[in-house]
Design a protein around this nucleic acid. Structure first.
Lengths: 204, 204, 204, 204
DNA sequence: GATGAATGAGATTTCATTCAT
DNA sequence: TATGAATGAAATCTCATTCAT
């Protein structure tokens, strides 16, 4: 009985989060009203405020989810077997939560978090933290690559990590704000080629 | 017929735009109220609405300014003398409107435009248009480099242009949302090295 | 599903309508602010906007009510038993919603609708529609009177209907705009006498 | 020189009044802004406030003009030669300022005065005063008719005067608020016939 | 006098949040 | 616990009027 009610609670909470996410992605945080969420979720005002203290808290929960999933997936990489090169490739995939290609919705949500980080302290904190950890992760991979001879010794790991992260971020923003279709296969190839050509030790 | 000079009106308009810009950069578009702008500009509500039809129109004017300046500077590059390589370097500088380094404020403003493009049609239009034109410009530079032998023949100009633009964009977003200090010298070097190593014909 | 009864909501709606009506009658539509209505109704701003989308919508609802009641009462006449003559008399009574005499308030409200019909399309539509239907009704009564021999054959039913309607309307405007006391008994008698003398077949 | 400047002043004043009138007739008093009048008149804000103390004062001036013209024309009738019957006919013509038919614009303006009389004391005063004087005039004509044997002795002059005035007013409101075309010839005939049949001594 | 930029009180409307039922 | 009507602070915008130039 507690189990059922817990499950029910989780479902309700998720229903709220899903509805809100869909709306935020589509119309943006400020343009979405609590009434919109009420309507979309099929729940009542009171119910929603039973699960979340405020609209901001709801937004932060969405960010928390997004943030944890991304970081968990990414940080699992480090422990994995495989070359540094393959890790770099896989982290790109993860960042875009790709099936085949990142969803525009996901990128729009991420853009919202970035924009909101200007005025919401906790959002800012997670944005910052995410950057720091992904940067550390990329740096670690690069260093691993240097250690095992895949990558050149002299490279500026810090800067390259930052450039890589920026490129992911930038592609995400572009994808979110633009109608252009992106050929993700080509992009990934171009990006990987550029990067690896620049840092790899092997001369093909 | 004007009782005050056009210059006077232009100054007042700029005073409004400047005040609004400072506030938008600092607190964000939605968190800034017209009352804030009234207070910051030292003018009255009526005066501001005499120059701009709405808060949105004011925001769009800021974007228009930003957009024109950026594009003009960038497109002037193409006509300039100089190697394709040097043009690529300079376009990076321009994108960040750098003195020494891009201003965080500028990047925050740009992030606002991206975020707003979700819900404001004219903003979206300009964001899209800007992307299209910068992409075209980068592609042109890359092709020029291929023509004059600086860059390799087989490179995917479209994708590389997109990656470059994304990296600029991503750095801008990072800079806007993060407290980290960025060592722009190193970043530029890393970026230029990565890119040029990958596409240049000269083997040092 | 409603947490409060429909009756409760209906009552609240009526409370708002009543308060607004009283104010509009007294000060006029434009001179009445939503704050006035808030104060008079004892509700909050939000509550009022929960029931009506705008001040204009509230005004239109008042017209709708007025309009339906009037037309229903009038059109019921046609089905009733009685001579055409008695129907004409009764329709005059109805038009002024009389107990003994039409209320000045009612007439002021009606004047507001007329004045607003210049700038509010839906209000205009109802004003127009009301005229058309009352005119049709009057014409029908006149024709009925002709058919059953009460009224002369040659009369211009269209014009007489229009004149009658105009006289009702004009009396209403006069009553609304003037401090003069009107002796409705005398007026009705004069009007009925004038009209019936002019159109009746019986020579007394 | 004083003459020219006086004439000029009159012209400017009239230009303002004309522009305002046209706008009030078309959009209504409240929906017309001083800016609208500025634009329509081609003058400046300051200029208009040089001639009129306020928007209300401007409106009242228009009423004053309307009011004087109407009353003067009407009151001249009494002194004229002619039967009481013909005077009644002519006063109908005057009330609608007819060329062939009353102008819808004129009627709309008149409706504005009626509506405004609810909230503008001086406007109310003139509306009231106009009614009193026209009523007196009509009564006088009716009594003249009785004296000279045109009209029956027993008629209720007060009530008939009021009914006549109301009918004029009502037709004016109808014409102002309705899209219907009115056949003024028929209406006048119907009205005159109804009235005169009812009050005349001659049995045709 | 004429001009029109500036004023600012006040209007309408929104919407996150509360709380009686 | 769930509901959704009610709240009211705060936002955007208007516009008659003023007054420095």
């Amino acid at each position: 009985m507690p189990k059922v009610s817990l499950l029910y609670k989780e479902n309700t909470r998720d229903k709220i989060l899903d509805s809100a996410k869909r709306l935020f992605e589509h119309k943006g945080y400020h343009e979405t009203s609590m009434d919109d969420i009420v309507e979309a979720s099929g729940l009542s005002k009171g119910a929603i405020y039973g699960y979340f203290d405020s609209k901001e808290a709801l937004f932060e929960s969405l960010q928390e989810k997004d943030y944890s999933e991304l970081l968990q997936a990414a940080e699992k990489l480090l422990a994995d077997e495989g070359s540094a090169k393959s890790k770099l490739e896989r982290i790109a995939d993860i960042y875009f939560l790709s099936h085949d290609s990142p969803s525009r919705e996901q990128c729009r949500m991420s853009l919202q978090f970035s924009a909101a980080s200007l005025s919401m302290r906790p959002v800012h904190g997670k944005v910052e933290n995410q950057y720091v950890r992904i940067h550390a992760l990329l740096t670690a991979i690069l260093k691993e690559g240097i250690r095992n001879g895949e990558f050149k010794k002299g490279i500026d790991t810090d800067s390259i990590a930052l450039v890589l992260f920026s490129t992911f971020k930038g592609l995400s923003v572009l994808w979110a704000t633009t109608d252009t279709e992106i050929d993700w296969k080509s992009i990934r190839n171009a990006l990987v080629k550029l990067t690896l050509d620049g840092i790899s030790t092997d001369r093909k």
